[in-house]
Structure formats: C-alpha cells, structure tokens
Amino acid sequence: MSILSQLNSPAMYAICGGIVAFVALICIVFLVRAWKAGLALGMDPVKLKRVVVSSATFSALPSVGILLGVIALSGSLGTPWPWLRLSVIGALHYETQVAQAAAEQAGMKSLSAAEMTPQGFATIALLMSLCIIWGIVLSIFFNKRYTKKLSSGSGSGKGAAGFGDLAMTAMFIGLVSAYIGSYLGGFISSNGLFTFSGDWTPLLVAAVSAGVMALFVYLAEKKHITWVENFSIAGSMLAGMAAAVLVGLL
C-alpha cells in the first residue's frame, strides 16, 4: 500500500473527521448560547439573523480559497490531514510553510509524496499542530483576565465604550494599511528599488473590490436598498477576484 493510500485511508478520515466534527459541535454550542443570550438581553432577532446571514455569505468565498489550500497539500500529505489542519486552528498562509520546514527536519528534501515516510508524516503532523496551538493556549490561560480588564464594565451593555471602540477600528485600519502598503511596495520595488515591475494584480484587485464596495454603499445609503449590505463584502470580493482572472487571461 503506497503512503498516499495510507494517508487517504478510511481510518485517517475517521480520525480527522471526528476532530472536525467535534469543532463543528463547539461552534454550534457557542452559536446557540449566544443567540439565546442575545434574545434574553433584548436584542432584536432580526439584527441577530442579519449577523448570521452576513457572516455566512462573507465566509463562503474565503472558504473556497481555504479549500484550495487543502487541495494543494493533499498531493503530499493526503486529504484528511490538511482538511483537519485548515478546519481547526489552521491558517492558509501558515500550513504550507510549516509543513515544508517540518519535512526538511524529517530528513526530506521537499514536501512530496515521493519522499514521504510514515514517520516523516507523523513528525510533520506533530510539528504542524505544535507550532499553531499557542493562540489557543494563551486563550486558555489569559482570555478571562484579558477580556475582564478590557471590558468597559457596561453590563448588559448600552454604555459607551469610550476610546476602546475607536482603538479597535484604528487597529483594523492599521492592519488593512499594512497589507495595502505591501501590495504597493511589492509593485514598485519587489524586483529592485523603484523598478515598477512587480506584480500589480493585488493592487488592481483591491481597487476593484473597493470600487464595487463603494457601489454597494451607494445603493444601501443613497438608494436605501439595505438588503445588499448582507452581500456587499462577498460581492466586492467576487468582483475583485474576477478582475484577477481577467488579468491572468491578458
């Protein structure tokens, strides 16, 4: 039996699928609890439903991108393990990098099925898990203390959050600015300072996506077509990604 057949065996699907199912159950428990608590606190059920619908539509496209990560890794690690890793704690940009580094430490030249051994796989799997668990470990020890400290103490919460809310918005602006700055810098200087010969696709994609978002905002705010808000992010992303496909075809 080849190593890939072993890695794609029903037993592997059962182990990895079992853990994914456990995490799905955790999500359902938190979802139901939050919904009930929201209603008990007097929140508008229409608003809660809107949050759920918009989050679902928001997540659909990036999830397909994550699925591609599973496909990309399935050639060397089989399908069940990448499926688990990208469903639990995993991150698209992280898994390939760590898997490659782990393969090197396991004595392989590169991450490939041709060089994979059972021990190599078990080592890669352990290192991939070990490297990514620290966010969850910090949550176990410090989430309670940290959130308590940060809480505005507004109880059931009509009180103003003061600077906290503005700080979070600013942090997000910083995050987006770092990435957009990196796309611009990549285009201008990635092939040598001020050569303007780098990849401009991310910049174009971001611009198209922003333009379509502007259109959605116009429809929602000026034309009062509020239902489009639920699909504004997904729609904008889809337009941006379509622009990337067009650039690729040029």
Binding site: V20, V23, I28, L31, A37, M43, L48, I66, L67, S154
Partner: peptide, 25 residues
C-alpha cells in the same frame, strides 16, 4: 466594542463563519 451586544454579535459571527468553512471544506 467592549459591550455585551458586541460579545454576542462577535460570537455569532465567528461561529457561523467557522461552520460555513467546515461545511465547505
């Protein structure tokens, strides 16, 4: 941010998003 309502909305959002990813994967 920092209010009970934010906590509820954030939890609903992350749980839904995670379930969508799990289902799509």
């Amino acid at each position: 941010t920092g209010t009970a309502e934010n906590e509820i909305v954030s939890t609903l959002s992350i749980a839904t998003s995670s379930l969508v990813t799990i289902v799509i994967l």
